[in-house]
Design a protein around this nucleic acid. Sequence first.
DNA 1: GCCGAACCGTAACGTACGGTACGCCTGCCG
DNA 2: CGGCAGGCGTACCGTACGTTACGGTTCGGC
Lengths: 217, 217
Amino acid sequence: MLQANADIDTSAMLTERQKAVLDAALRLLVEEGDNLTMTAVARRASCSKETLYKWFGDRDGLLTATVQWQASKVRVVPVDGERLDLTSLTASLEGFASDWLKVISSDTSIALNRVAVGHAGSGKDDLGAIVLENGRFALARRLKPVLLAGKQAGLLDFADAETAFRSFFGLVARDVQIRLLLGDRLELTEAAIGGDAVRATQQFLALFGAKTGPQGL
Amino acid sequence: MLQANADIDTSAMLTERQKAVLDAALRLLVEEGDNLTMTAVARRASCSKETLYKWFGDRDGLLTATVQWQASKVRVVPVDGERLDLTSLTASLEGFASDWLKVISSDTSIALNRVAVGHAGSGKDDLGAIVLENGRFALARRLKPVLLAGKQAGLLDFADAETAFRSFFGLVARDVQIRLLLGDRLELTEAAIGGDAVRATQQFLALFGAKTGPQGL
DNA sequence: GCCGAACCGTAACGTACGGTACGCCTGCCG
DNA sequence: CGGCAGGCGTACCGTACGTTACGGTTCGGC
């Protein structure tokens, strides 16, 4: 389930003009939320509605193209799972936590998640699946190799990488995402994010750190 | 901020008929999502649209009344913070975790959160604030006395009840709520919820349990 | 039995918006 | 230079839905 083949890179077959149009739609989505109109997109992008329909089919097509376009912009570099000690593992986890908090508190992420959640009710399109695939599941794909390497190096101890990841996810995100989506003002400064990242990492290490660590004497 | 005086009990000044109408609207909200029409509500509730407008002002008024009505139905009993030992504290925490997972995975909670998130973008009404107030913040109000009692009894150790609560929240909910809101199929059986509740509680105790516990010899 | 208020059912109105058609301009190709 | 494909701007259509108006019905009070 939840395949949604959202990982095939559709951004390759987009002309520069089309990308510009999608960027305009994205900005408008951040400003207006789901109640953006085709006319507004056309005006903002300085193109005609007919072009929008020719390129994207209908309104839902434009929305999914916009979401996929944003997703394609944050492709990530695979981590190099080489020589791992406790400090490098800690740094890596803190980096993931900090990045993730920055993402989910960004304006565009909030706007995208809002429309995806709204559309998830009436299953017209797969916005929810796309967002999930490029958000939470992409994060898991990136983080799990690190966790497994940490286990291999004897630094971490867990039975299942999936459950370990989900606990890390919970420790990092806590109630932040749902509060932001529900409109709670909750300014996350750079410093607060950094603090949360080290706290979450410490807690995760306390839960899943191997008993036979460097302090094992 | 986020006051939204959503805790004044408006359900007292509702006639039985009005409650029935709101129940119909609620069921319809679960089925149809945010795209429910006034006509549909009137038909389902066997009342006239004129009555809907007379009672609730406009569509947004009906929506907020529905959300508040649902919120008023889950008023909770205050816990008795008496004689607390580790087993009773554990049981209490597991109860909170299990209840919370049951709530956020229920159809009505998902539907309500979906519309509230959708409306949070364009601040026409305060659905997001209401849901937040009766969801996450109500849980905090109920749980914090337990945490403080646990600290008082020497069973827990934390500096700030708020941050301790948020960690507990993260350990319990993890990625469940956002996945459900985004439409991920994710059936939580009674057994799975129970297992998650004990796991989350154990992890929380591992993080915040006092070092000088019953095993302190 | 009668009155008025509340309410039901439904028809009607206004508008916003998705979707389409058409005229015009511009740049490319032969 | 003529045609033409692509694209802009805009006017237009159809429809769904929020909102209002109105006639008919029930019901409590005198």
